[in-house]
Design a protein around this nucleic acid. Structure first.
Lengths: 218, 218, 218, 218
DNA sequence: TATGAATGAGCATTCATTCAT
DNA sequence: CATGAATGAATGCTCATTCAT
């Protein structure tokens, strides 16, 4: 376990080894519980070298978040064919998302749990990634609305909320899929498409669910 | 800020003060970053008294989780009128959920972020609460299917997945609502009802979204 | 276990219960590891009452030492008939000593181990008791010498050393007897009499063991 | 006093400095009363370094016991010429013992008082050393019996008891010698030889002290 | 006579971080 | 490029002791 202790390798390679070790440790132990000692040892490197390359624990954590956020968005982007209709694009994006998170559970734990739990600077880092995904979904919703040429006047905040909800549901299903044995990325994606797209379709047909008039204010 | 430093109060009262301080501190700083010193000070009490009443940091955290999980499920349960049809019950439950989480942001941070991020024992504690909510939603979906007397044969795992997705979406919207100024619990609930219930309705009409035949394996 | 929690009992009785609990706790846990909480609980009393009656942990420990030292010396004194010849007196004293220590292992642990290990004031307390025993033995040696009317001019320091050695041997045998199953006080006393008295007799016959002339200084 | 604060020395050296400081502190204050802070300061090192090298207070204490037990047994072993007759061997062993304990009073306090007073794991450590010494003495007694070709049939437990008594007497005399000014190791050894060897000789001549028939049971 | 409530002070332990080589 | 040696600063936890009743 851990990288083979090869001496004298180029900086770029060493850095990736360190990030690998860090992602694994942060993902399993959590940000605070992970010690630089453990990370250095798992990377097969002395602690000062970690500091030489990555400056501080905060910087190291940030570097992990950036690398893994980039990897996830790239995986989703590359999984989607932008020529296809909106529902197919969403389907492909979800499949890529569930596949990637299932294959990189520690990375997903870092992004979904640890980064959001340990203070502003880290949370902001994932928030950026999340916004990219929400924007992607928002775009698809608007495209779908245009394709259907019906009711193009969905209020902006409403669309934003729908996208938020969809991304949140996807995140929840990723965790659910990771802990439910025998559940494939494909099945998770299908469940979510059923849940969301059908609802959205109905919605855009002009038949939204109507909240009842209220007596007691919330 | 902080409780008035009244000396000599009965144990039950002090304990609640301590839990208040702990929820606030854990919610804002995180489990590891919160120090028992800070919690004690915020509670207006000396550290030994916290230990005398709550034994350890772990026990204190667990007590926080339990109290807030109980408070949240109670709020939702009491917000729902079980005589109403399924869609109205879900609507009321969501409203109660968004209202409670908006009013107790630290408690929600403890339940949604901190408890899930810091190890099995705590995660298990919230998992129980989550399962109660998922079960509640699952029940509503089945009732709705029966009420519609259509396609009563939804596969069990499918329903479970839908419920997971709905709860996940609700959790995401709770965070979104907490950070979007001027967004009411009512609006958040309506967005989610639109998103989900319309989709479910469509689904149960026998028009699910159909995944395309695949070429590349996932 | 522990005293029955009878309310409102006279001070003298309560004090003895506290000392019982303290001796047991100090003997088993050691002075520092024993907590006033544990002692109070074992005595079936609240902590402030222990302080009211016995002032402080130090005073409580000192009271234990005094009570048990007194009990041990009394047991030895009452076991010895001063009319008998010296060897019979020593035999009886040793039997009483081994019997008492075997019956009160916690008390013996307090006197022999704990009191000597935790600082001057306590060590001084047992030293007094020890000196009484050494004096008793010294007296017997001198009486024996007079009875034998031989070589009455044993140098004082020599006699003191012999008495120290005998008491030390007795203490070691007490520990040994306490941990060797099936070894009676009588057997322990016989072993020591054999060892010591025969040696002393020989010595006083004018046949001491002669140290060889030395080349290397110590 | 205390090591000169030379920075950057090899681990093995620092470890010995730490053990020196620990033996001194444990010997004078006792195990519980000794604080890691004090030990670190006396060693001229920061506390974390002590933990880095010696893991914990328990491990540090155990390391002290091991080192000093080894040093004492080595001193005795090297002080004895196994070619000599039994009485000479005992004489030399005792001289080495008293010399070593007089020169290393803190180490002797650690072994004789502290280690036996603070729980099983430590007591077991010294018990091993003590057994080695008892075995050494037991061997000498048996050799002496064979050399004298008299009464070779001493019962095993009897011999064990005699050896225990002799070692106990030696331990008592070591403490006595340490607190009696002007008393040399040589004198202490001579006193004990007189006490013990003469007694043993007598015993093996077939003139043991005979316990009187008993009326009252013990 | 007796106690529930409360604390100041200290202690073992850990960790991120740096220097000298 | 790489590391063994070293530390300042916290942090969780415990304990003897006291006050108000």
């Amino acid at each position: 376990m851990g990288a083979v202790k090869n001496k004298r390798m180029p900086r770029a390679v060493r850095e990736q080894q360190m990030l690998d070790a860090a992602v694994r440790t942060f993902g399993q132990r959590g940000y605070r519980a992970a010690s630089m000692d453990e990370i250095a040892e798992l990377a097969g490197v002395s602690k000062p070298l970690v500091y030489l390359y990555l400056n501080s624990k905060e910087d190291l954590f940030t570097a992990c978040i950036r690398r893994e956020a980039e990897a996830l968005t790239t995986a989703v982007r590359e999984g989607v064919n932008p020529e296809l209709p909106a529902d197919r694009q969403l389907w492909e994006g979800l499949r890529a998302f569930f596949t990637h998170t299932a294959r990189n559970p520690d990375a997903w734990a870092v992004l979904h749990l640890q980064a959001r739990t340990h203070g502003e600077p880290f949370a902001a880092e994932v928030a950026a990634m999340r916004e990219e995904m929400v924007a992607f979904v928002t775009g698809l919703i608007l495209v779908a609305a245009r394709e259907a040429r019906r009711d193009p006047s969905l209020p902006e905040r409403e669309v934003a909320g729908l996208a938020e909800a969809l991304v949140g549901a996807a995140e929840a299903l990723a965790a659910w899929a990771n802990t439910t044995p025998g559940l494939t990325a494909r099945q998770a994606a299908a469940t979510l498409m059923n849940f969301a797209w059908s609802g959205l379709g109905n919605l855009m047909d002009g038949h939204p669910w109507t909240p009842p008039a209220d007596t007691a204010p919330a």
